[in-house]
Amino acid sequence: MSLFRLGIAALIAACATSTVEARDYRFSDAHLHFVDFFQESAGLDDLVANMAAANIEHVMLSGIPVAKKWHEDEPKRPRYYAGDDANAYWYSATDTLIAHAYNKLPAEQRRRFHPFLSGFNPNDKNADALVRKTLELDPGLWQGIGEIFTRHDDLTALIEGDTPRANNEALSRIYHLAAEYDLPVMLHSNITSKRERNPLYLPEIEEPLRNHPSVRFIWAHAGTSMEIHRHQTKLDFLLPTLERMLKTYPNLYIDLSWTVAHPYLLDKEGNPDPEWVRLVSSYPARFMLGSDVVGRFDSLKEYMDSFVPFLDALPADVAQKVAHDNFLAVLPRTVQAELAEQQPSAE
């Protein structure tokens, strides 16, 4: 074994030794959809109850920017966007549903919920005007933009219209607006296709990172997807690519939700991957966790708990940043200031 790998093994062993007593994590869920692909939800009461069960203090509250069609020729209503071959279409009313849910929350609860605006067509150069109007209708309500769907494997094929790209002109106008309003942007932009074993679409995410340095970009699932993994199992180029990008782009943040836990953070036996422990430890402010649930919340605890073996392999201060703090740190500065004021002062 090389000295480098011995060092990594020693780091993990030291972290494990220091966590004989289980750590008590507080979570921020940086990737949660309040509604599903039919714009339906289990509701606020269910979400709040499951947040309590999962020890989740803060959530990103977003809609779904598309709605799945129940086609005239389909005898049974689909349960998911991949349930049949019917199209999906861009659905701007999803933001109305999010705003309505947020405004129903008791005032003391609202500090825990962070609405992200997503209901626009990312191929339409009119989209920034719609987003600006939505921001102006509810000043101070929206705390981010996304999840923006660009390349999203089979879902992209189902959405009516052209394939969205993270580096198209319509989205460039959105990024300028995000910078103006100090809003983070969550992008779903697959790093490759189902078949290509190389970072085929990487330039599409790198261009906005380079051209919009004042925008804080959250890359959903680090560019991976479940459909990619069905065909390729694991992308060997992902970790070195992320390492280069994190070094190059200080405005890049990585969402570790869903398709990143396995097979990257943890192996088949549930053991932390030493290389990912090293990467996250090297950039302790740049990673965050999410569940990526869609409209149903009873699996929140299961999803967040699945990250615990990886968090336990990190230094304690880094683990708490990844589990809780980093998501809050990308929110608008006014929101961060309000959260800081609401923290109880130390006696």
Rank of each mutant, 00 (worst) to 15 (best):
K301E: 15
T334Q: 13
D73V: 04
L6Q: 15
E136L: 12
A129P: 06
W258Y: 14
V185N: 00
C15I: 00
Y81A: 11
L239P: 09
A93C: 01
A9H: 12
A346G: 09
L246T: 10
D305M: 07
N121K: 08
T19D: 08
R112F: 12
Q143I: 01
L279I: 02
I228K: 07
H71K: 10
I218V: 15
F113Q: 04
R210S: 13
M245P: 06
S2A: 04
Q336F: 02
G295A: 08
L177R: 00
G146N: 09
A346T: 14
M226C: 07
A93I: 03
S193Y: 08
W276R: 00
E227S: 15
E341H: 08
L117G: 09
K76R: 11
L61P: 04
R333G: 09
K194Y: 09
F149V: 14
N103V: 00
N326F: 07
F37L: 06
D24M: 01
K301Y: 10
P122M: 07
Y102A: 00
R296L: 08
S189G: 10
L252H: 06
L137H: 13
D84Y: 02
K133T: 14
D255L: 02
A93K: 10
D273A: 10
G146E: 05
Q232H: 11
W142I: 04
E72S: 13
R151G: 05
I191T: 04
T241Y: 04
P139D: 00
L279T: 03
N121F: 10
L44H: 00
F307P: 12
E21W: 12
R132F: 06
E147C: 09
P139R: 08
H58S: 08
Q232L: 15
D36L: 03
G161S: 05
V66Y: 01
Y91K: 06
S189Q: 15
P164D: 05
A323T: 03
P122G: 07
A285Y: 09
E74K: 09
L331N: 00
H212E: 00
E180V: 01
Q232N: 13
D138Y: 15
